[in-house]
Amino acid sequence: MTTQTGTSPQDTGHHLTLTVDGRAHEVEVDVRSTLLDTLRERLGVTTVKKGCDHGQCGSCTVLLDGRRHLTCLSLAVQHDGAELTTADGLAATEGGGEGDLHPVQQAFLDRDAYQCGYCTPGQVCSAVGALDELKQGHPSHVTDDLEAEVDLDDDHLDDELRERMSGNLCRCGAYVNILAAIKDAAGVATDGPTTTEEAAR
């Protein structure tokens, strides 16, 4: 692992260690810095996107200590020592060889689950987190029986994934293919590849 030290003029005394995509960084931040601005402006991690900057759009989602998290609503000083995974780091964490995409990333490519792509890193991280929560058996707002296992038959799974992904907006409206991609990644067969024409209907 390499260690980077921030040396820009904004240095004002709060010394943090952040591990981002497996790489340790040492950085001095202004106390007011969000995790999002620290990642983008100080550490050069531009995978993480700033959309609304108020917790409404989900573009800044990363996995923080394994859970999906909004970096825009987080003060960096509160997260000294944290381990973050951005969409960029997902490929390395699963499978092995360099160039192997995470199954969720591959499914987004296969399903054309984006248009402009700006929300995509946040969507991918959120989907990875959501599928992990499903695997752990956590219920959602649309789960009928809180005490039973989450119903993953085809119709229910659509509703479950839509509900669980509601914190991520896509202003291009690629939701149909985002849903298909996440279902693919969840290992659930859907009705064949979605074409652009089908998605446009």
Partner: peptide
């Protein structure tokens, strides 16, 4: 489960 989003409920 009716409140906020998956991300914010973790936070």
């Amino acid at each position: 489960l009716a409140g906020a989003s998956g991300q914010i409920r973790h936070q």
